[in-house]
Design a binder for these strands. Structure first.
Length: 961
RNA sequence: GCCAGAGUGGCGGAAUUGGCAGACGCGCGGGACUCAAAAUCCCGUGGCCUUUAAGGUCGUGUGGGUUCGACUCCCACCUCUGGCACCA
């Protein structure tokens, strides 16, 4: 009987050992075999739960693995320590955000220690400390110096709950990323970083990031949102220019009205006295609404006619100018030309307000529809249509005909021959034509729309109330799907451009616009400049001074840091609430001046921290260029996918900016990116009393009211508010940190979200117990065993174990290094143990046992370092595991002598044949051997052999008849 | 609406290049040990149908297709998750 697996004692013993021995100390002067592994640094917002653990456990496994493989690995840790949550928590707890933050940092470090997760703590970086934010301010000054930081008055998103403005990227799904409040538009003078100057490079360079997950790149490219088209200048009647952006210059001839955003500066000037009241009411209402509210009204279009008109530069048509909130001031030029025939939104708007809709692009599918109303034609039409081969459906009230564009001319002739006097028939879709008894009219202009409609109204009182032809035909369901389309196609009714094919149309029109001075090529982005001013205390002060004489003056580098004022923290505050903070002297003239009282967005702090880790105590600058150039880009970056846009885009921008300024020689910060999934946990909720802790629940009932408890059927992210957090302390206390680590790694592929299961934890614990017992039971045998295995003298069983061992080493190595699949690495180690354990029960080869167990401990050690370190000593070693090199696998030890080949007959697996490995490798020999096998012959009797396919070492497939 | 990603036993998942589907773990069933329980160990465990061994058959969201062979490739669709969303 061996001693019990006393995980508490074991973990206590080794907890500080690795750090004390300096295994995790990285020497940045030594760049040979360097590896920079980086986890996104945490926000120290309280205690870390098992979900946070997943991220850092992965990092620790990889780090230990690379140490054993002889790499000089840098895996540093720091704290993203400024920001609102600290402030809000400090207000709640009546303390200072610094106190709260530093206490959480200490607590988190203690948690890392308990997990056995080691870092080079000499490189710790904390963004809220002056020795760090001093250089965040330096970064601001450099961006300012290079015209990449500027202050401007703009309409920005203001969160009333957080009492500060937000960057565009921090408005997620229309609400504040932090607190869920819809932000209000507010016009303020604020600092921006000119990230749009890098829009193209941020987009194009995504292609260089071959080791980034596709979906992250996709999200970034969507966020940047590049659209290519043209800016076109329209003129108001008084000559004022109205510039619109369009991605479809080929549809210009179909522009029948214009729409300006309610905030557009020209709205006021265009509004006529008669419309003023309505327009002002509409604009005011729009300005009060947040973007969410605008969108939430089911997208029913609203808008008001300004009374003003503009001239379409391509055909000199006079078109009305409207204002409507479906046009956003924040995109393009805040004004659009509306082409209702080829844009879904414009179509809906035109239909609602009775504006003309003129098709100017042919339908590529050429579908044309026409409805022949009963009583408008002579009786023989149906037979005539049939005789000509047209497809139609006959109903009691008429014929529903669907034809192709190239049949339209013949159809019109036929129709004219059958049309009764006073009636009409229209074709819609790829062609819009109205057939009257005395001629055919085409819907090719606003005038045509009016003229045709007038004729229809004259003969049909039912359509008297219709304002446009499109409105008239829209009431027939049969027509609806062909009335507008957004495809590219041949241009129609477009003056000299009519007939231009869809593929060339945009470019041809834009070039012509440019030549005639009516417009120009233009590109617009969804990405906006990064608003970095914040009106709250807990952030890096903006190092700018306003002097009455000298204006805006940057604080000289040598005066940094601009320190956060020491105050008693008593509630929500900004630096402007702190008496005396703003008062200063002008660095240029020495006169009286005022400081900028805003702080920087915390994403500025985290946009450069990966650079600081290389020389964290350097005081002459933020980093030493030569060292940073040698160590970056980061070889492997790991973090949550929630940073796919914000942090990762900002960091890429800052790196590129610093590169262009000459401070860096690389322009992408992270070579490989891995985004790990969340750890979720079932959450319980009483309809009456809200979220409940699992231990509170009484059977399946609420302890307060006895109501049936609801379980989340989706995977709920662990969060304090949902009371579904699993704390590492509980797991470590019951099973030890090694068990938590092993389970975390084993539970599923690390990039996927996963549900925490307490039963799964027990399984991991059981496995460690089995290994412990197994290893200790062999300790004496190992101590006495020879050191080298004589592979040639092993018997069958021993050989099988030897093969399994080498296969396991290979698998574990490849899974950590290449695939990041720790779950399959762990399961292959479990398989090895499953095979090892019965071998030990019989007489066996001592040297083999020794080699396999030693190897087992080594390959298991990155996953569960405590117990492995202990077992390593127990089998007679006095040196540390991290001093050992990672086991290698011998290719020839992987080889088997025979090979079992599955045999398929007519696609079904029927039998297996065991052949010598040499036979299995040669297709002809394999074919022959399989066809000669008894178990195969049985199937072939009396049948004709059609085909035999032999895949060496894989399988044989036989086709018979 | 658009763009990603996913869908495999009772559950988490495996199958890395088109080649034995369900590795490994959990759970469950049976057994051993025990006065008993826990722990531990052993055996079994996708469904259905025959069954003395054994075998047959269905089976990776649905429906088609390509192939000697499809979880894997192609087409269409359904569901879920995430991102963006009146982007002109």
């Amino acid at each position: 009987m061996v001693e019990r697996y006393a995980f508490k004692k074991i973990e206590e013993r080794w907890r500080d050992f690795w750090c004390e021995q300096g295994f995790f100390h990285a020497e940045t002067s030594d760049t040979e075999k360097k590896f920079y592994y980086l986890n996104m640094f945490p926000y120290p917002s309280g205690s870390l739960h098992v979900g946070h653990g997943r991220n850092y456990i992965i990092g620790d496994v990889v780090t230990r693995f690379y140490i054993m493989r002889g790499y000089n690995i840098l895996n540093p840790m720091g704290w993203d320590a400024f920001g609102l949550p600290a402030e809000n928590a400090a207000i709640d707890r009546k303390t200072h955000p610094r106190e709260w933050t530093l206490r959480n940092i200490a607590q988190s470090k203690e948690q890392f220690r308990a997990w056995g997760i080691e870092y080079d703590w000499d490189r710790e970086v904390t963004t809220c400390l002056p020795d760090y934010y001093r250089f965040t301010q330096w970064l601001f000054l450099k961006l300012y110096e290079h015209d990449l930081a500027y202050k401007k008055k703009a309409t920005v998103n203001y969160c009333p709950t957080c009492d500060t403005v937000l960057a565009n990227e921090q408005v997620v799904g229309g609400v504040c990323e932090r607190c869920g409040t819809p932000p209000q538009p507010k016009t303020l003078k604020q600092w921006f970083f000119r990230i749009t100057a890098y829009a193209d490079r941020l987009l194009d360079d995504l292609e260089k990031l071959t080791a980034w997950p596709e979906h992250v790149k996709k999200m970034q490219s969507n966020w940047i949102g590049k659209s290519v088209g043209a800016d076109v200048t329209f003129h108001a009647e008084d000559g004022e220019e109205i510039v619109v952006f369009t991605t479809r210059p080929d549809t210009l001839w179909g522009a029948t009205f214009m729409v300006l955003a309610p905030e557009h500066p020209l709205v006021d000037g265009l509004t006529t006295p008669g419309q003023r009241e309505a327009v002002e009411a509409y604009c005011q209402q729009a300005s009060r609404q947040s973007e969410v509210e605008r969108v939430s009204t089911e997208r029913a279009k609203t808008g008001v006619f300004t009374g003003g008109y503009a001239i379409n530069p391509v055909n000199n048509e006079k078109i009305p100018v409207w204002t409507a909130d479906y046009v956003l001031m924040t995109y393009g030029t805040g004004a659009i030309m509306a082409v209702p025939a080829h844009d879904e939104r414009d179509f809906a708007f035109a239909l609602k307000f009775g504006l003309p809709i003129i098709p100017v692009i042919e339908r590529p599918d050429g579908v044309v529809k026409t409805y022949v109303m009963k009583g408008t034609v002579q009786d023989g039409l149906a037979d005539a249509l049939r005789a000509e081969g047209y497809k139609f459906e006959a109903h009691s009230d008429g014929l529903f005909v669907t034809i192709k564009a190239d049949q339209v001319d013949r159809y019109i002739e036929l129709m004219r021959a059958h049309l009764l006097p006073g009636g009409w028939n229209e074709v819609v879709g790829a062609r819009f034509a109205w057939i009257f008894d005395d001629g055919v009219m085409t819907l090719n202009s606003v005038e045509a729309d009016k003229a045709i409609l007038a004729r229809c109204q004259a003969s049909e009182p039912n359509v008297k109330d219709k304002r446009t032809l499109m409105e008239m035909v829209y009431k027939l369901d049969f027509y609806r799907d062909v009335l507008f389309h957004t495809d590219y196609g041949t241009m129609l009714h477009s003056g000299p451009f009519s007939g231009t094919p869809g593929g060339k149309a945009q470019e041809k029109v834009t070039t012509w616009l440019e030549k005639t001075g009516k417009g120009c090529h233009a590109v617009h982005y969804h990405l906006h400049d990064w608003l970095i001013s914040r009106q709250r205390y807990w952030g890096a002060p903006i190092p700018i001074v306003y002097c009455e004489k000298c204006g805006l003056v940057p604080v000289p580098e040598e005066n940094l840091p601009v320190l956060l004022p020491e105050v008693e923290f008593i509630g929500k505050m900004g630096l402007d609430d702190i008496p005396g903070y703003a008062e200063t002297t002008c660095p240029r003239c020495g006169g009286q001046a005022e400081r900028d009282t805003d702080t920087m967005d915390t994403f500025v702090d985290s946009s450069w921290y990966y650079l600081r880790f290389i020389s964290p105590r350097y005081e002459e600058g933020p980093f030493i260029k030569e060292d940073v150039d040698r160590w970056l880009p980061v070889d492997q970056y790991v973090g949550g996918v929630e940073h796919a846009i914000l942090h990762l885009l900002y960091s890429r921008f800052i790196t590129k900016a610093l590169c262009d300024m000459g401070y860096l020689s690389f322009d992408e910060p992270f070579k490989r990116l891995f985004t790990q999934g969340m750890v979720c946990h079932r959450a319980y909720r009483c309809p009456e009393h809200g979220w409940l802790y699992p231990h509170e629940i009484d059977g399946d009932r609420c302890p307060h009211c006895g109501a049936l408890v609801e379980t989340t059927d989706y995977l709920a992210k662990m969060s304090k508010s949902k009371k579904n957090v699993v704390m590492p302390a509980d797991i470590i206390d019951r099973y030890g940190a090694d068990t938590e680590r092993l389970y975390t790694l084993f539970m599923g592929p690390p990039d996927r979200d996963i549900e925490w299961s307490n039963e799964g934890v027990r399984g991991a614990f059981r496995f460690l117990n089995r290994v412990w017992t197994l290893v200790l039971s062999q300790a004496d045998r190992i101590a006495a065993a020879p050191k080298t295995v004589d592979a040639d003298r092993l018997d069958e069983n021993a050989k099988r174990l030897w093969r399994r061992y080498h296969r396991t080493v290979k698998k574990v190595t490849e899974d950590i290094e290449g695939r990041f699949n720790f779950n399959t690495a762990v399961s292959s180690i479990m398989e090895l143990v499953n095979e090892l354990s019965p071998y030990l029960e019989k007489e066996g080869d001592d040297a083999l046992v020794r080699a396999v167990i030693e190897g087992l401990i080594l390959i298991l050690s990155p996953f569960v370092p405590f117990v492995c370190e202990e077992m390593w000593r127990r089998i007679g070693h006095s040196d540390a595991i991290l001093d050992q090199s990672w086991p290698s696998f011998l290719p020839n030890a992987l080889e088997e002598e025979t090979c079992e080949i599955p045999v398929q007959i007519n696609g079904k697996l029927r039998t297996r044949v065991t052949v010598p490995i040499d036979t299995a490798r040669d297709p002809d020999a394999l074919k022959e051997a399989v066809l000669a096998a008894k178990s195969v012959i049985k199937w072939l009797e009396g049948k004709d052999l059609v085909k035999v396919i032999a895949i060496p070492e894989k399988m044989v497939s036989i086709v018979i008849k």
